[in-house]
Amino acid sequence: MSEVQPDYLTISYRPDLEVLVGRWMRQVSFSEMCQGYYLLLQAAERHQCRQWLIDVRRRYNTDREGAHWMVTEFLPTVAPRLGGRTHLAYLLAPVILRDPEGDSAFPTTEALAGRPFMGERFIDEAAAVAWLQQMR
């Protein structure tokens, strides 16, 4: 049975890599972002997948509100539902890494230390997938 996905996010599962892939297709509002991450979590539950590749190259709006919601509200609910530490590899456009506001909104690796989730940023999809494979 296929499920309807919103126009702003595609979700697929790569069984060969055991990676859930979410690709944001456009700019999103805060409520769309929240809804999209809950859709990703539902897909991850179906596949029991804790390795996520999140492609945000078309979504240039990492902001403090969204980052705060992710770290304080959304991500703490993921580990209990998936049964362990979740790894999120964010695929970013190079310009985002050069944007001081967007960069400061993204939690650092140190800020995520000891949490039941870990995120890392990449500009190369192969490197992101390799990191996810290493984290398994």
Rank of each mutant, 00 (worst) to 15 (best):
R81C: 14
L88W: 01
T86W: 02
L9R: 00
E110N: 11
V129S: 06
A93F: 11
P80L: 14
E3V: 03
R50S: 03
D16E: 15
R115S: 08
A105D: 07
Q5E: 13
R136M: 05
V95W: 05
L40K: 05
G36N: 03
D103N: 11
Y13T: 05
S2M: 07
A128P: 02
S104K: 09
G84L: 06
D103W: 00
L91K: 00
V78K: 00
M70E: 04
F117C: 00
L53V: 08
P76S: 08
Q35P: 12
L132I: 03
M25N: 07
G83Y: 09
H87P: 01
P116H: 09
G66R: 07
L9K: 04
Q5F: 10
R57F: 08
F122A: 00
E101L: 15
P116S: 11
R26E: 11
P107H: 08
L53M: 09
Y60G: 12
A93I: 03
V71S: 06
E18Q: 14
D7W: 13
Y13C: 02
W52I: 06
T77E: 15
L97K: 07
R98S: 08
L112M: 15
W131E: 01
L9N: 02
P107C: 03
E18T: 06
G84W: 08
G36S: 10
G66M: 10
A43L: 05
A127K: 12
L53K: 03
F74H: 10
L75G: 05
M70R: 07
E73K: 11
P107I: 03
D7S: 13
D124L: 09
R121E: 08
I123Q: 09
H87S: 02
A126P: 00
Q134N: 11
L20Y: 06
G36V: 04
R46S: 08
M1L: 09
Q35Y: 15
F74N: 04
P107F: 01
P100Y: 05
E101W: 10
R59L: 02
V95A: 12
L53Y: 04
M1I: 10
C49V: 04
Q5M: 11
N61V: 10
L41E: 02
A93L: 07
A126H: 09
L75A: 14
A79W: 01
L17V: 09
Q48D: 05
P80R: 12
L82T: 08
